[in-house]
Amino acid sequence: MFFNRRGSKKYAYITARVRGMKSKLIQREVFPKMMNMDLAEITRFIGESEYKQDVDELAQKYSGIDLVEHALNQNLARTYRKLLRISQDEPNYLITEYLRHWDIWNIKTILRGKYYGAPPEEVQEAVVAAGQLGYRQLISIAGMESIDDIKVAFENTPYHSAISDYQGGMLSTVENNLDKLYYSRLLSSVGKSKGEMLSLKFIRTEIDLKNLKTLFRTKNADLPRDEIMELLIPGGAELKDGDLRRLVSLSWQDFIKSMEDYSYWSALSEVISEDMPSLMGMEAELDKYAMKYSSEVSHYYPLSILPIFDYIIRKNNEINNLRTIARGKESALSDDIIKKHLVM
């Protein structure tokens, strides 16, 4: 009753603490105010908030946009590692699996860096050690010259099977393998009890949203049917295998129309049309939908993993918003364009 294969379910402490952490996130009203600041003011603002330690630590090494970028990345990694530190047993197990997303992200970054011949220093600066792979490990892998060395470095990790066949060249297959590996591990990590069924639905919805983004991008680029099917991740909540096959074979116009059949239409109805100029609005709306959904389900089962997943998504979103504003200000983009990229 109280124990299962992953240890006991101690959610009271971690969920209350995560709610405390969530209350310290930057409120949505603050982002429009930040639009009126220049880069130095933004740096000072985040240096006086939860990011103080990171800004102070990195201020000697970096300045300007690099300082903001690195402080945000370091804070994200530190926050996620804190979640792992303060949790135990089942919550710890599930958070570990969920945060493998960042390992996947780092492996992709490293391989992309090698593919485009980026200098190791640039790749090393782009990694975010928020998953299971430590910062030092990632830095040493990013410094490796050949793809074979990188494959050897990942030999004892779960990711080896996804990258072992890679021989250089286009990365889409290996990136796709990594995504599929991540979601199949995540789906199998969640149990089958009532509270966990909702966690399972949450992950399945996340897969749906990811597949929708892929579908929009690939259909818009008019990719061949087989290639699109390869890029989609199985296991979605609403978009089952049959739905995916049907959607892939539709023309762009019919594809847009058939979106009305799914609950995601409520989020997409205002931003998609047959002659939509860009996909930016669609992606932002789907991100907003993901946040709204995670916030809703976290209230259904307060003593479950869902409030923690909700926090992980919100923290990442806050970092993305801050980065968007800082980068936008540095590139002297207009407020309207920056605002369109914000997910609030």
Binding site: K10, A12, T15, G20, K24
Partner: peptide
């Protein structure tokens, strides 16, 4: 009290005023 106490400790670990 087991869960309430654990939750209370979790809450004021983050926010002492609680």
């Amino acid at each position: 009290e087991k869960d309430i106490g654990a939750a209370a400790v979790g809450a004021f670990a983050e926010r002492e005023e609680l």
